[in-house]
Amino acid sequence: MDKPSLEGILTSAIVAKVFVKIFNNLKCLLTWSKLLLTDMGSEFKGSYKKLMKEHDVKIQKASSKSSIGIVERFNRILAKKLFCIQDAQELLLPLPKRSRAWVKNLPIIINDLNNSVTQLLGITPNEAIKKKFVYAKASKPKYGPIGYNEIRLIYNDLVLYLLKPGELEGRRRHATNINWSPQIYYIHESLIEDINRNGPKQSFVREELQVIKDVQLPPQ
């Protein structure tokens, strides 16, 4: 039996309609943002892009999944909570039938998440949106200077960047794969570039960069 295709269900028109419904709700404390960070999905084009332009909202495209890690993590938690109920119901149904329990449970679970204290903030999301400023806690114990006290990398620092699993070999990561990029790059503004300016166009956190000192580059 062929699986039903989900292509075309999540369109830019539907996403735009949801945004209008949310921000037109008088009970909603959110206001139209100045900047929205999205992935490269087609649902963030067309009608969605037109709507954001009408409200003077700038759209920034994430260059990698790590750039929108908070959203990806939320989606993962939401899916786990939703589909444990979904799967339990579908086990009792004949094979051709599928449960739609997630539609009913979705607002209940989102409301629960919005009223649950997060480890990163120490408060609930519903409390956070009422504040003008929200400060995140450190995600890991402090073993050295971090934040403003951390030594910042400067222009033209030579660095290696941490490779993602399978990035270099193009397949699953093996124990023999190297951890750091085989080429040396330097920092130019907010991008990582090599001498020929064809380095990876993505953002990195400090822990993903290894500073290289006293390196003699080959003559140009």
Results as ranks from 00 to 15, higher is better:
2 D>G: 01
3 K>T: 04
4 P>H: 01
5 S>A: 02
6 L>I: 06
6 L>T: 06
6 L>K: 05
7 E>R: 15
8 G>T: 02
8 G>R: 04
10 L>Q: 08
10 L>T: 02
12 S>C: 09
16 A>L: 07
17 K>P: 00
19 F>N: 00
21 K>R: 14
21 K>T: 09
22 I>R: 04
22 I>P: 03
26 L>D: 13
27 K>R: 10
28 C>T: 13
28 C>H: 04
36 L>Y: 09
39 D>W: 00
40 M>C: 15
42 S>I: 06
54 E>Q: 14
55 H>K: 13
56 D>F: 12
57 V>I: 10
57 V>C: 12
58 K>E: 15
67 S>M: 15
68 I>W: 05
70 I>W: 08
71 V>H: 01
71 V>L: 15
76 R>E: 04
80 K>D: 14
82 L>H: 03
82 L>K: 01
83 F>W: 08
83 F>R: 02
84 C>F: 04
87 D>Q: 12
88 A>C: 08
90 E>H: 00
93 L>I: 11
94 P>H: 03
96 P>M: 05
98 R>A: 14
99 S>N: 00
102 W>E: 05
102 W>T: 00
103 V>T: 11
103 V>G: 03
104 K>E: 12
105 N>R: 10
105 N>L: 10
106 L>F: 13
106 L>Q: 11
107 P>Y: 07
109 I>H: 05
110 I>S: 04
113 L>C: 13
113 L>S: 01
115 N>R: 11
115 N>C: 07
118 T>Y: 01
118 T>C: 12
119 Q>E: 12
119 Q>S: 13
120 L>D: 12
124 T>P: 09
127 E>C: 05
128 A>W: 02
134 V>I: 12
136 A>S: 09
137 K>M: 10
138 A>Q: 09
139 S>A: 11
141 P>M: 08
141 P>A: 08
142 K>G: 02
146 I>P: 00
148 Y>N: 09
150 E>D: 04
151 I>K: 12
152 R>N: 12
153 L>M: 07
155 Y>V: 08
157 D>W: 06
160 L>G: 00
160 L>V: 03
164 K>D: 03
164 K>P: 01
164 K>G: 03
165 P>N: 14
165 P>F: 06
166 G>P: 05
166 G>T: 13
168 L>D: 09
169 E>C: 11
170 G>M: 11
171 R>I: 00
171 R>Q: 13
171 R>W: 07
173 R>N: 01
174 H>A: 06
177 N>G: 03
178 I>L: 06
181 S>A: 14
181 S>D: 09
181 S>K: 11
182 P>V: 04
185 Y>S: 02
191 L>E: 15
192 I>Q: 04
192 I>E: 04
194 D>R: 01
195 I>W: 09
200 P>K: 11
202 Q>I: 15
204 F>P: 08
205 V>H: 11
205 V>N: 13
207 E>Y: 08
211 V>A: 07
212 I>W: 03
214 D>T: 03
216 Q>R: 14
218 P>D: 10
219 P>E: 09
220 Q>A: 13
